[in-house]
């Protein structure tokens, strides 16, 4: 990921650079996509519905919550509300990253926001940290492989779900926390990183225990964001933490 150069800012090379950076994301998501497809069919969704969900919602955690609720007798609007509750954090991503997208056309923004999943947001933020231009070509180069693999894996998982090995033994159930931890660590140069992480962690754990999932994500996130807003020194640039 240090191979970026400033030579040749053609859209095609930017696209390829993004595609290269998508490799770790694609790998982290593979087992999860297969698992979603398998679980969706197990919960009574058709293969078409499973693929439709991955292709239109494109939000792994909320899709898992969704299929969990489909199989119980819960009012449709409650299922929709639960999906939105899981995805509410994207509002923060959108507001954060939207600040850098003034040079995109409205259509590019409309398309780009569809693909704003957790790793997409994190990679885009890291790119801004390195002061590299956030071009639409780079963004889509990163987004499309992840998206296409996600939809493809859902399809494969739905077809061959019974072949998926024991998710516990192979650590599949814990791959995403590891991946998200790596993302959290990659932002450690930011002001107030350590206290923000600590406060979000404590708040999300308390919320998880009391209010319950999925609200712990929004509650924990807002706690950290408010802390950052209130306590960041007026002149940013000083580093704290490690």
């Amino acid at each position: 990921m240090t191979a970026d150069t400033y030579a040749g800012r053609r859209p095609s090379s930017d696209f390829l650079r993004g595609a290269r950076q998508s490799v770790p994301i694609v790998l982290a998501v593979v087992p999860f996509g297969l698992l979603f497809g398998a679980l969706a069919v197990e919960h009574g969704l058709s293969t078409f519905e499973a693929i439709l969900m991955s292709a239109t919602l494109y939000a792994g955690a909320s899709q898992m919550v969704g299929i969990d609720l489909f199989s119980s007798r819960i009012a449709p609007w409650v299922v929709v509300l639960s999906i939105v509750a899981v995805n509410f954090r994207h509002v923060l991503y959108s507001a954060t990253i939207g600040r850098y997208l003034d040079h995109w056309t409205p259509l590019q923004r409309a398309v780009g926001f569809f693909f704003l999943v957790d790793p997409q947001f994190a990679e885009a933020e890291r790119r801004m940290e390195r002061s590299e231009p956030l071009s639409f070509a780079w963004y889509m180069g990163l987004a499309l492989p992840v998206y296409l693999c996600w939809v493809g894996e859902t399809w494969l998982g739905a077809l061959f779900g019974q072949l998926i090995p024991d998710t516990h033994t192979f650590g599949i159930d814990f791959i995403l926390p590891i991946y998200f931890l790596a993302l959290v660590m990659s932002f450690r140069k930011r002001p107030l990183w350590l206290p923000v992480v600590a406060i979000s962690a404590v708040a999300s754990i308390i919320a998880y225990r009391t209010v319950g999932s999925p609200w712990h994500v929004s509650i924990g996130a807002l706690a950290g964001v408010f802390f950052g807003a209130l306590f960041t020194p007026a002149k940013p640039g000083k580093e704290t933490g490690i």
């Binding site: 954060t96 957790d118 959290v184 932002f187």
Partner: peptide, 12 residues
Amino acid sequence: LNAVPAAVLTTL
């Protein structure tokens, strides 16, 4: 907003 990546990803 600059705290968003650390704050949100931590909750995951």
